[in-house]
C-alpha cells in the first residue's frame, strides 16, 4: 500500500472529472506532466497511484484491459473497482505495462491493437508505469524531445525507468498514421503526487540517454 497520504476518499464523480480534465490537457499537450490530485484509495503495490486513478477515471464495464501476467492483485483491483473485463493484449482497449524495464511487457506492447484505417480510434491506449517524469534532467534517464500537434515548437522532457526499446517499439507501432497506439506514461512523484504524461500517436519522439 502506498505511503502517500491523501485527504479525502476517492469520489467517482468529482475526482473522475478532475482527473479526466488533467488527462485531456495532457493529451492535448504532449510533454506536459499532468498532476492528478490524489484521493484516498487503497492501491495494490504493483500499480502506481497515477495508473490506478486513470483506470478509475476512464475504465467501465464496457472496456477491456490487460496487465502483465503475475500481477493478479492489480488486475483484481481494477476489475473490482471499475467492472472492466480482462482480455488478451492483442484485443484490449487499455494495455497496462506495470514495469517498462521488463522485456516481456514490451513484447505485449508490440501486440497491442492499432485500429484499422476505417476506425483508427480502435487503437489501444497503453499505460506505461515509469520511475519518474520530469521537465529537468535526472540521474540515469532518457531525454525525450517531442514534436507534433499540441506542441508549439518542441518540448523536452526527461523520463527514468524506461528503456530505449520502449520508444523504439512505439515508433514502429505508430509508423503508419492514423493507425497506432496512444500512451500515458505514469509515475508517482514524492513532491507532485501521481503524474501522467501523454504521448499520442501523432507525437514524434526523439530520445537520447543522459
Amino acid at each position: 500500500m502506498s505511503t502517500l497520504v491523501a485527504a479525502k476518499p476517492y469520489n467517482q464523480v468529482f475526482d473522475g472529472q478532475e482527473h479526466y480534465r488533467t488527462l485531456l490537457q495532457a493529451t492535448a499537450r504532449p510533454g506536459m506532466i499532468g498532476q492528478l490530485d490524489d484521493a484516498l484509495l487503497d492501491v495494490p503495490r504493483e500499480l502506481n497511484r497515477a495508473t490506478a486513478l486513470i483506470a478509475m477515471a476512464l475504465f467501465s464495464a464496457d472496456t477491456s484491459f490487460h496487465i502483465a501476467p503475475g500481477k493478479a492483485e492489480a488486475a483484481e483491483f481494477i476489475q473490482q473497482q471499475t467492472a472492466a473485463t480482462r482480455s488478451g493484449p492483442e484485443q484490449v482497449d487499455f494495455l497496462i505495462v506495470p514495469d517498462a524495464m521488463q522485456a516481456d511487457a514490451l513484447r505485449e506492447l508490440d501486440q497491442a491493437r492499432v485500429g484499422s484505417l476505417a476506425f483508427p480510434d480502435m487503437g489501444a491506449t497503453v499505460i506505461v508505469q515509469v520511475a519518474a517524469l520530469s521537465p529537468a534532467p535526472m540521474a540515469d534517464c532518457l531525454r525525450l524531445s517531442l514534436t507534433g500537434p499540441g506542441i508549439e515548437s518542441e518540448t523536452v522532457v526527461f523520463v527514468s525507468g524506461a528503456p530505449e526499446l520502449l520508444f523504439e517499439t512505439l515508433r514502429s507501432k505508430n509508423i503508419e498514421f492514423p493507425l497506432g497506439v496512444d500512451v500515458f506514461l505514469t509515475c508517482d512523484s514524492l513532491s507532485a503526487g501521481p503524474c501522467a504524461m501523454a504521448l499520442p500517436r501523432t507525437t514524434r519522439v526523439k530520445w537520447a540517454r543522459v
Binding site: 488527462l23 485531456l24 493529451t27 492535448a28 480510434d121 491506449t125 499540441g150 496512444d182 501523432t202
Partner: peptide, 10 residues
C-alpha cells in the same frame, strides 16, 4: 471521455 481522448489523439 474515452472517445474525446481518442479524438484528440487523431
Amino acid at each position: 471521455r474515452r472517445k474525446t481522448l481518442k479524438a484528440v489523439c487523431i
